[in-house]
Write a protein that binds this DNA or RNA. Structure first.
Lengths: 254, 254
DNA sequence: AATGAGCGTTGCACATCCCGCAACGTCCAC
DNA sequence: GTGGACGTTGCGGGATGTGCAACGCTCATT
């Protein structure tokens, strides 16, 4: 919509792939060097871009700060965190929290056995959207046209033999998920990893986030993991209730 | 430098404080609503801002993805190299850069008087992990359980009479290193070689790499080498700052 | 049910501000 | 010493962003 800003912002994903010098930026942007220079300078003044010793540009610190602030401002994360921790302490396995945004599903929190969350190493990473339990939960709740549109645009990488193969299978799986109110990923992303997840809903009943529990099948079989479903759903429902405005339950500290 | 981009980017820190509607954005930017709308639309198309149910704007998901990608592509070696070279030119001795990965410590860069050595010559050749200064620095920062696990699995070859003899001694040494923020290897690997090293930290304070200066004691005594510690730490800190996104200092060219 | 306030959105004419050009300075390699 | 590559600068033309005013919509109020 705004040419100048559009060009400037296009520089960011370009630099995310790795440092680049002025000429490379100008070329990949399809503009004159002097134009690229002005854009980069502006980005630099705002700290979004950083210039290293060899004068090449890379993404700057303010970007990380912004990303962190943004994730901290997600109130669902704040509310959910104690519940996730409590569940993790009870059952030991890795617990994920994810949201849907603009065609992507992103992890926004993670609690791993004994290890505190490492902000930048995992959170913010886009989920394997065609197979992850949390992705199924979030997409299953989209309005039908959007759901269909998203499913049609996706790639369906065959991570394993049990990965979702195509849009038709995916939509069918989403229908099942929506009906039963929970989802699984049984070796669809990595052969030996199983997940079971449940949706977190706002006051209006719409799914605002999804959580899942993951474990390698050398530790627990898929059946054993499924037996944890009531606890996962219980936690998700407790989060939903608090998010919807009810007083916190004992669930978080149980 | 570019007014339009400047205004657009000014929206981001504004939204970082919390969601805002069009009017608020326009007012705080000091522009007309229609202008703010166009800027927000452009930001929206790039996924940097997100529009929530109540139509208010907040920071978007792509911000996380960008930060994530950027961190993964941060190449410590590239950033550190000019600093290492500068230090080498100032003090003359061999300078090493190393990282920890999957239970091993690897040299990833080395600057020897006048001869920069490519990583290939050294990679795959693990560091003498129980005695090297860089190894101590990297292991000292691991979470306690992992540190203990690694220390327990190691062999403790008696390279010299001053080599680390066993896991208990090693863990004790690591505790010292973590506390003082630097490390040495005084004849622990080869009788006549001393090293002094310092950690390089990421924005979150975690040790991402370590560097050291080595010299044979026929050239400089251990005491003389230790007197270089401030310069080593200064260099390591400068690298840490640039790696974390701060503007480069004069350190590299001093 | 009618009214009006508040907000986001649209089309438009003006002139601002961005664009590409070409030339310069600098650094490095040959 | 010379050529090339790269970043940088000033400048004129014109594309592009700007603010204005009017419109549609939702919602609260009467």
């Amino acid at each position: 919509m705004s040419q100048t800003v559009d060009r400037a912002l296009s520089i960011l994903p370009l630099l995310a792939q790795g440092p680049a010098d002025l000429g490379q930026v100008a070329e990949r942007l399809g503009v004159h060097k002097s134009t690229a220079l002005r854009l980069l300078r502006t980005l630099h003044e705002h700290g979004l871009v950083h210039r290293q010793q060899d004068q090449r540009y890379r993404l700057g610190a303010r970007l990380f700060a912004l990303a962190q602030e943004a994730v901290e401002n997600l109130d669902i994360r704040e509310i959910a965190h104690p519940y996730l921790t409590a569940l993790n302490e009870r059952i030991g396995h890795t617990v994920h929290l994810a949201v849907y945004e603009e065609g992507e599903v992103l992890y926004i929190d993670k609690v791993e056995s004994r290890y505190p969350v490492r902000m930048y190493s995992r959170i913010g990473k886009p989920v394997a959207i065609t197979v992850a339990a949390v992705a199924k939960l979030l997409l299953a709740d989209l309005p039908e046209p959007e759901r269909r549109a998203v499913a049609g645009k996706l790639d369906y990488p065959p991570y394993t033999s049990r990965s979702t193969p195509n849009a038709a299978a995916f939509l069918k799986e989403l229908a099942t998920v929506r009906e039963q109110g929970w989802a699984t990923d049984l070796g669809g992303h990595e052969e030996s990893i199983n997940c079971v997840g449940a949706p977190i809903r706002g006051a209006d009943g719409r799914v605002v986030a999804a959580m899942s529990v993951s474990a390698p099948n050398v530790v627990v079989t898929a059946e054993e993991l499924l037996s944890l479903l009531p606890q996962v759903r219980g936690t998700a429902d407790a989060i939903s209730r608090e998010y919807s405005g009810e007083a916190p339950t004992k669930e978080a500290s149980a």
